[in-house]
Design a protein around this nucleic acid. Structure first.
Lengths: 194, 194
DNA sequence: GAACTCAGTGAGTGGGGACTTAGCCAAAAT
DNA sequence: ATTTTGGCTAAGTCCCCACTCACTGAGTTC
């Protein structure tokens, strides 16, 4: 059966977004051309601009969607996790699942349009909240050292970002999180332990 | 008095390199055009290509020079510093002095031509050596926790990189290292203390 | 001082890639 | 059944920017 116009339109738009997500993860965000995305979907180049007035708008839609979905996933998984180790483990798991795109985002973030940069910040802010509340509980309980929670969070994010940004050095073609995630996690926990 | 041809040539080349360094630090590496650099020096656009066959070659010269000079500076200053705190302090001082360019390099590193990426790696490897030997000494002496030195180094680099990459968030227009350097240093030392 | 060399010029050239547009055809409206 | 609408197409257009080249004029060589 033939699709209605609206269905067709939405389908194409979705295909463009998911093709973009995939190509961005593999080849980089900036260096991906609108034509590449059109080709992958199997539509003409012009079609991209039927759905998105500019490349930037496409970018925003893709990255925002990614941010929303990853944030949701994290919240769902960590709903019943209350100790820090578990939450950090979930954090790693979620990142690992989307490692390629996430790493791309970290790499290119500072060069992306301002509208998009907010996405990564929001994402991290959301995650910081969970990590910090768990951390404060364990500080009170005397399980870990007392320290300002922003420093604890920045140390954790710094470590993870550093490994992701240099993932080719640390893990070649493989997943850094899969390869080094446990080592990083145990090291971090040992550092902050009392 | 008039310069000889050779002097003139060298002078222009040097001017191109230092103008590049300056503009890169302010406006970014990728987004700087060869014409921008020519304008800054006050020569014609074509002159750039008299001295460098391609933009990439200019890039390599600029970034390599930066890497060499910063590495030298670090080695000179840390010649008679044997404890970890002092070495890390020197590391921060050297970065602070070149913060804008250094941050640019971190931001764009992964997107730069492979020939250039080695520079940052070499730089960090050199610095890692100093930090790791000091760290091992203090571990033996029982001043800090025992841990694999690569993890100690990566934690430190992760922290610094994280602050530099997000320097606009942490410090606005100001220097992040000047603003937050001490906080970072003290936090890090407290973490690794026994 | 005549012939030659070469740093520097600036108006091109070429290629890449975002965006436009006239036209097509199938779905929707009448 | 006829007209209108609108998603999609394909062949542009336009702009940007790295790089070229024929030329100039000031050093250099003899």
């Amino acid at each position: 059966m033939a699709l209605t116009r609206q269905q067709q339109k939405e389908k194409t738009k979705t295909l463009l977004v998911s093709a973009g997500l995939e190509i961005f993860a593999k080849n980089g965000i900036q260096s991906t051309k609108t034509l590449d995305i059109a080709k992958k979907v199997g539509v003409s180049h012009g079609t991209v601009f039927v759905h998105f007035p500019t490349k930037k708008d496409l970018l925003i839609e893709i990255i925002d969607g990614f941010g929303r979905s990853i944030s949701e996933e994290f919240k769902k998984l960590s709903a019943d996790a209350h100790n820090l180790r578990k939450i950090l483990k979930i954090h790693l798991k979620v990142i690992e699942k989307h490692e390629n795109f996430y790493a791309r985002l970290l790499i290119e973030n500072a060069l992306l349009p301002g509208e998009v940069r907010g996405t990564l910040i929001n994402l991290q802010t959301g995650i910081a909240y969970f990590i910090n509340s768990a951390a404060r509980n364990e500080m009170k309980a005397g399980d870990i050292q007392t320290m300002p929670s922003h420093l604890l969070f920045n140390t954790w994010m710094g470590l993870i970002s550093y490994y992701l940004l240099n993932k080719d050095i640390f893990a070649g073609e493989k997943s850094v999180i899969k390869t080094k995630g446990n080592e990083i996690l145990n090291h971090f926990l040992k550092l902050i332990k009392l």
